[in-house]
Simulated assay, not measured.
Amino acid sequence: MYFIILVFLLAIGENDAVFWQRLKCPYEPKHQSLLRVWCRQRSAECCTGLTFSHSSQLADGGKVRVTQDTHSFTVEVLEPSHREGVYWCGLLSKNGTIIKLAEGYFYSCK
């Protein structure tokens, strides 16, 4: 029986499984209208990446998916664009600084 399941999984390409890494980013209700930030940490105080609106669902050519909850958003990454490393999710404040909400290490599959 297990042999049949294994053959079936190999036949449908299960060995090419997609692995989405995710990070949940909670924020205060007063920050709901701010742009979202997804970036790779360059130093303790700096990161490089992209911004997107609260209504965005895809970013970075479809490699980044975003889902919005009541007071948080979740970023799911298929493959980090700027190599593996520590990534931040945050909000872009009115004065242009990043309000860091969470960070996590994201791995490259290559």
Score class of each variant (00 low, 15 high):
residue 1 M to K: 10
residue 2 Y to L: 00
residue 3 F to W: 11
residue 4 I to P: 02
residue 5 I to G: 03
residue 5 I to K: 11
residue 6 L to G: 13
residue 9 L to M: 14
residue 10 L to V: 15
residue 14 E to I: 12
residue 14 E to G: 14
residue 14 E to N: 13
residue 15 N to H: 13
residue 15 N to L: 14
residue 17 A to T: 09
residue 20 W to C: 10
residue 20 W to N: 08
residue 20 W to Y: 12
residue 21 Q to K: 08
residue 22 R to S: 14
residue 23 L to C: 07
residue 23 L to D: 08
residue 24 K to H: 09
residue 24 K to F: 05
residue 24 K to I: 12
residue 27 Y to N: 04
residue 28 E to Y: 15
residue 31 H to M: 09
residue 31 H to K: 14
residue 32 Q to V: 10
residue 32 Q to A: 15
residue 37 V to H: 02
residue 38 W to C: 05
residue 39 C to G: 03
residue 39 C to R: 05
residue 40 R to C: 08
residue 40 R to S: 06
residue 42 R to W: 14
residue 43 S to C: 07
residue 43 S to N: 11
residue 43 S to D: 15
residue 44 A to P: 08
residue 46 C to A: 12
residue 47 C to Y: 05
residue 50 L to S: 06
residue 51 T to H: 04
residue 51 T to I: 07
residue 53 S to Q: 06
residue 53 S to K: 04
residue 55 S to A: 11
residue 55 S to T: 15
residue 56 S to D: 06
residue 58 L to W: 04
residue 59 A to P: 02
residue 60 D to Y: 05
residue 60 D to N: 15
residue 60 D to S: 10
residue 61 G to R: 05
residue 62 G to D: 00
residue 65 R to Q: 06
residue 66 V to P: 01
residue 66 V to Y: 01
residue 66 V to D: 05
residue 67 T to P: 04
residue 71 H to A: 07
residue 75 V to N: 00
residue 77 V to Q: 04
residue 78 L to K: 14
residue 81 S to W: 03
residue 83 R to V: 09
residue 86 V to Q: 08
residue 88 W to K: 06
residue 89 C to F: 00
residue 89 C to R: 01
residue 90 G to E: 01
residue 91 L to N: 05
residue 91 L to C: 01
residue 93 S to R: 06
residue 94 K to W: 03
residue 94 K to D: 12
residue 94 K to G: 07
residue 94 K to F: 00
residue 94 K to L: 03
residue 95 N to Y: 10
residue 95 N to P: 05
residue 95 N to E: 14
residue 95 N to I: 11
residue 96 G to Q: 02
residue 97 T to A: 13
residue 100 K to N: 02
residue 100 K to M: 06
residue 101 L to Q: 06
residue 103 E to R: 10
residue 103 E to H: 07
residue 104 G to M: 06
residue 104 G to E: 05
residue 106 F to N: 00
residue 106 F to S: 01
residue 107 Y to S: 07
residue 107 Y to L: 15
residue 107 Y to H: 12
residue 108 S to A: 14
residue 108 S to H: 13
residue 108 S to D: 13
residue 109 C to W: 14
residue 109 C to G: 13
residue 109 C to S: 14
residue 110 K to H: 11
